[in-house]
Structure formats: C-alpha cells, structure tokens
C-alpha cells in the first residue's frame, strides 16, 4: 500500500485580511503524479511554499514526511521545489548550478543531468543572466528531474519552453518516474498537455479546494449537450448544470455527471449532440466567474 507523504488540515495562509490559502484539507500519497491546477492567484504557489517550508501557515496542521516542513532539515532535504522564476547568484552559469546540486539533493544523478542538458541543448557555460527565458526554464526542469527528490514540485516550470522542449520534459518525466517512482506535483496552466500524465487532480480556486479526485474519475465526468433550446432544456432538467451557452434557438449546456448508454441513445433519438468535456474545459467551467463560489460538494451533488 502507499503511504501518505503530505497531510494538511485547516491549512490557512493570510496576507492581511486576504486568505491566499483558506482552510484547506488534503493529502498527497507516495509515488503519484499530482496536478495542482487553478487560475492565476488561486493560491497554488502559496500552497506549495507552505508545503516546502518557505512560508509559515497562520492556522491549521501540516505534516510533510510526518513533520512540519519548516526548519526540519531531514524533511527539507527530501524536497525539491522548482519555482517559475528561480533566481541564481550573480555570475552563476548552469554548470555551477549542476555542480552544486548534489550538495542539496542526495539522489542527484549527474549522468541523467548530462543527458537532459544534451536533450535541451543548454549552453552550460553561458552566464545565467544571458540565457533566454526558455533556457532558464530548462535549467529548472533539469534540476527538478535529476534531483530525484522523493517529493518534487514543478511550479509552472516551462515558461518560454517551446513545444518540442515541453514534450522532452513530459517524456523524460514519465520514463524516469517509471524507473524511480516518487511523488510529483505539477502546477500548470497547460492543462490539456499534462492531463494524461496526472494520476490525481487538485483544483484550487480563491484559496479553497474545488476538486480533489483521481484524474480518471474526472475524465468524461462532464458532458456538453447541444441542440434546439427547448429539447436541451428538457433533457438537462434536474441535472447539475455547470455551463450554459446559447445562440438564437440553439443551446449548449454542460452538465456534471456521466451519461449512461441508454441516456446517450435517447439523446441521439431526440437529435441532440453530445460532446466530451476535456479536463481543461471542465476547469474553465468550474472556476468561471458564475460558479466561483461552488464547492466540490455542490458540484458533485
């Protein structure tokens, strides 16, 4: 069985009267890939900073590898946090970063790092402040992968990385995770790109957790029904509606919940079109302005 790596209850971080993380409860299990998703300012980075001991919570309980992370060296050395815009000392080159990495990460694999450097075509002797935005992101991605930390966070790791480089990242992540299982938290806006890599999804909005479910449960959990307005409205009656669009006499309504085969056949007989809702579309619906206050319970009801 898997063991729990992170356990949070009632975890809260306030900046003045603003709660960036607002009484959240969740757990992260060992050897899984998590997606921490949400809009800008939802609280994703603050949450990861709490988990990595960079911030102190105002309220609530937090255990990482069984202890509070802040100021516990034995916890911190098992963590790796790749920030969106990591800063490095003046005059550092990528070579300096990779040479000093083994001091902080006991599982550091220098050979793997070399392979990644070649994959990303990273100029290791150029000063970091002269690197392009994408090359700077590649430095972070390489550290995150080659460190093989038992709990690794990637916070929007690929600003400026092109599509080819992002796919190298996904491929190497999956390969290495298969050989060296560990807990990985990916926080990103590019939901469609990473959706299939995730085992579990945590959606955060306005400092609260909106959704905390297995990715496979989320997939296909919502359906969009389109057709003549009156027919659509009758079909969706009594179902939890999470999105609604219309054009003249046509309506397109997204419901939360799977349709059984019989219902699909009935929809076809009524002349309705059914369309799948991707994880990204679902999240747009769930975190859209009109439903910003909905909780997981309301959505699932």
């Amino acid at each position: 069985m898997t063991s729990t790596v992170v356990r949070a209850s009632g975890l809260t971080k306030r900046y003045g009267s603003f709660a960036a993380v607002d009484h959240v409860d969740f757990a992260l299990e060992e050897h899984r890939i998590y997606g921490l998703l949400g809009r800008n300012g939802a609280g994703k980075t603050t949450l990861m900073q709490l988990l990595t001991g960079q911030l102190f919570p105002n309220e609530g309980e937090l255990e990482v590898f069984g202890r509070t992370p802040a100021e516990h060296a034995d916890v911190l050395r098992r963590l790796c946090f790749i920030a969106e815009s990591q800063r490095y000392p003046e005059d550092f080159t990528p070579k300096h970063v990779f040479t000093s990495a083994p001091w902080f990460f006991e599982n550091w694999d220098a050979e793997f790092a070399e392979r990644l450097i070649a994959d990303f075509r990273l100029p290791v002797k150029r000063r970091i402040k002269k690197l392009s935005r994408g090359q700077l992101s590649a430095v972070g991605v390489i550290v995150g992968l080659a460190s093989r930390a038992p709990l690794t966070f990637f916070d929007e790791p690929y600003l400026g990385l092109d599509a080819v480089a992002r796919h190298i990242f996904y491929d190497r992540l999956l390969e290495d995770y298969a050989e060296h299982p560990r807990t990985i938290v990916l926080s990103t806006h590019l939901i469609d790109e990473v959706a299939n890599l995730l085992e579990h999804v945590i959606l955060i909005d306005q400092g609260r957790i909106l959704l905390d479910r297995d990715a496979e449960e989320v997939r296909g959990q919502a359906t969009t029904i389109a057709g003549a307005r009156s027919v659509v409205e009758e079909f969706v009656q009594g179902r939890p509606i999470i999105g609604r669009e219309g054009l003249g006499g046509l309506a397109s309504v997204t419901i939360d919940g799977r349709l059984e085969r019989e219902e699909r056949i009935r929809a076809a007989e009524l002349g309705l079109e059914l369309a799948p809702v991707s994880l990204q579309q679902l999240i747009v619906h769930l975190t859209g302005a009109d439903l910003a206050g909905a909780t997981e319970k309301e959505v699932a009801a």
């Binding site: 899984r32 999956l174 299939n196 990715a215």
Partner: peptide, 16 residues
C-alpha cells in the same frame, strides 16, 4: 511502462 511512454500517460493508468 512501455504503454505509458508510448501513449504519454501515467503508468498507473496503463496498469489499470
């Protein structure tokens, strides 16, 4: 793991 790498999916999903 081969299925996971080929389809770019989580290995736990392939195992399932």
């Amino acid at each position: 793991n081969e299925f996971a790498a080929y389809y770019r999916i989580n290995p736990a999903t392939a195992l399932k």
